[in-house]
Simulated assay, not measured.
Amino acid sequence: MGDRWFPGSWPALRQLRGTDRLGRGKAAQSERSAELRARTVRADRVVGSICPYCAVGCGQRVYVKDEQVIQIEGDPDSPVSRGRLCPKGSASKQLVTSPLRETTVRYRRPYGTEWEDLDLDTAMEMITDRVLKTREQFWQWEHDGLRVRRTMGIASLGGATLDNEENYLMKKLYTAMGAIQIENQARI
Rank of each mutant, 00 (worst) to 15 (best):
Y111K: 14
L100G: 09
G18R: 05
P52C: 10
V69S: 01
T103L: 04
Q185E: 15
A186C: 13
V96G: 10
T40P: 02
E35L: 13
R150S: 09
A55L: 05
P76R: 03
P110W: 01
A27N: 00
A12T: 10
G74Y: 03
S81C: 06
P76Q: 06
W115F: 13
L100P: 02
R42S: 11
Q94E: 13
V131A: 12
A12M: 08
V62E: 00
E102T: 15
K133M: 12
S92V: 13
M124R: 10
L169D: 09
A43F: 00
D117L: 14
W141E: 14
A55F: 03
L118W: 04
A186D: 04
G48C: 09
S78N: 06
R39A: 14
G158Y: 02
T151I: 07
W10E: 02
A43Q: 05
R17E: 09
S78C: 11
C54Q: 03
P99E: 07
E142Y: 04
P87M: 02
E142K: 10
V80I: 10
G83Q: 01
G159I: 00
D121G: 11
K65M: 09
V41H: 00
Y53L: 08
E102G: 12
D77E: 14
E166S: 11
D144S: 13
Q15T: 05
I188H: 06
D121R: 10
A12S: 07
L100F: 12
R135K: 12
V131L: 15
E73R: 08
V105H: 02
V69D: 02
E73P: 01
S92H: 01
H143T: 15
Q181H: 13
R32S: 10
A155D: 01
E116V: 13
R135D: 04
S92N: 03
L36S: 09
R150M: 12
R150K: 14
Y168P: 03
V47K: 01
A38R: 07
V69N: 03
L162I: 15
D20T: 11
E114P: 04
Y111T: 13
A38D: 09
R130F: 01
R37N: 07
A12K: 06
M1I: 12
D44I: 08
G83I: 00
Q140P: 03
R101Y: 00
L16I: 08
N167L: 14
R37G: 04
L120W: 08
T134K: 03
A179N: 04
Y63T: 08
N164C: 14
V105I: 11
E165G: 06
A12V: 11
V47R: 01
P11V: 03
E73S: 08
R130Q: 15
I127F: 05
G83H: 01
R21I: 04
L100R: 14
L95K: 05
R82N: 07
M124A: 12
R135N: 08
E136M: 04
R24L: 13
P79H: 03
Q181C: 13
K133A: 15
P11Y: 02
D75L: 05
D66Y: 00
W139M: 12
K172L: 05
F6Y: 01
R42C: 08
Q185V: 15
M170K: 04
L36Y: 03
V148I: 15
E73Q: 09
T103M: 02
G23C: 03
M177F: 07
D66C: 04
A12P: 00
I180H: 00
S81H: 00
L169R: 11
R24H: 07
V96K: 04
D77C: 07
D77N: 11
L85Y: 02
